[in-house]
Simulated assay, not measured.
Amino acid sequence: MRTPLTAIAAMVVLAACASQPPPLQGEFAQITPREAAEADRTGALVRWGGRIVRVEPQPNRTCFEMISTRLTVTARPYWASDDTGGRFIACRTGFYDPAVFEVNREVTFTGRIAAYETRKIGGYDYRFPRVEADIVYLWPVREQVDVITRPAPWPWWGWW
């Protein structure tokens, strides 16, 4: 009787580890910023994330220019390859310090697509969907760990 209860408890604990933070939970339109820029999706409720390109504090709000990436099951941005989901702008009432929200930090937003803006990236005119964000979720910096391996002594089978 104890073994099945222990196994069930372990599964519950592991499932909790893979869940999304409460502010990022919910049902959202399954579209990328690139898809939203190609067709008018004004009003769609989205959960998008990626890396910060630029932070623009304004008098009553802060806007973030983002490069979109896929999200993991926990809703954290994930760089699987150089293929991104496009770019977007997310704005939220209040001041978000550019010293904290630095370039390349990972952020996930939830909110509705409110409008579109055309801005230049280099010499190219790019159509950005603009999200009026309800949630701005800054992820902790990922720690990089270097793993050092040592070669096994030769012959390995005689050294235990």
Rank of each mutant, 00 (worst) to 15 (best):
M1Y: 04
M1V: 04
R2C: 13
T3W: 03
T3N: 07
T3Q: 07
P4E: 07
P4I: 09
L5T: 15
T6P: 01
T6W: 06
A7R: 14
I8P: 10
A9N: 10
M11R: 14
V12F: 00
L14K: 09
L14H: 04
A15Q: 10
A16C: 09
C17N: 09
A18F: 07
S19R: 13
Q20F: 03
L24G: 10
G26V: 05
G26P: 11
G26C: 03
A29V: 15
A29Y: 10
I31W: 10
T32E: 08
T32N: 09
E35M: 06
A39C: 05
R41K: 13
G43D: 08
A44C: 08
L45V: 12
W48V: 09
W48C: 13
G49Y: 02
G49I: 03
G49T: 06
G50C: 04
V55G: 03
Q58A: 10
Q58W: 05
P59M: 04
N60D: 09
R61Q: 11
T62E: 01
F64Y: 12
I67G: 06
S68M: 02
T69S: 15
L71F: 07
T72D: 14
V73F: 11
V73Y: 11
T74Y: 02
A75M: 08
R76E: 10
Y78G: 05
W79K: 13
W79M: 12
D82N: 13
T84E: 02
T84R: 13
T84I: 05
G85E: 09
R87P: 00
F88V: 14
F88K: 12
I89K: 08
A90M: 05
G94S: 04
F95V: 06
F95M: 08
Y96S: 13
D97Q: 10
P98L: 06
A99K: 15
V100E: 13
F101H: 15
F101L: 06
N104G: 01
R105I: 02
E106D: 11
E106W: 01
T108N: 01
G111Y: 00
G111F: 00
I113C: 03
I113K: 03
A114S: 14
Y116P: 15
E117H: 15
T118L: 08
T118D: 15
K120Q: 15
G122F: 04
G123I: 07
G123E: 11
Y126C: 02
F128V: 11
P129R: 03
P129G: 01
R130D: 00
V131Q: 07
E132F: 03
A133V: 01
D134K: 10
D134A: 11
V136T: 11
V136W: 04
W139V: 01
P140Q: 12
P140G: 12
V141P: 02
V141K: 13
V145C: 08
V145Y: 09
I148H: 03
R150L: 13
R150F: 14
P151H: 05
P153T: 06
P153Y: 01
W154M: 10
W154Q: 12
P155E: 03
G158V: 07
G158Y: 08
G158M: 07
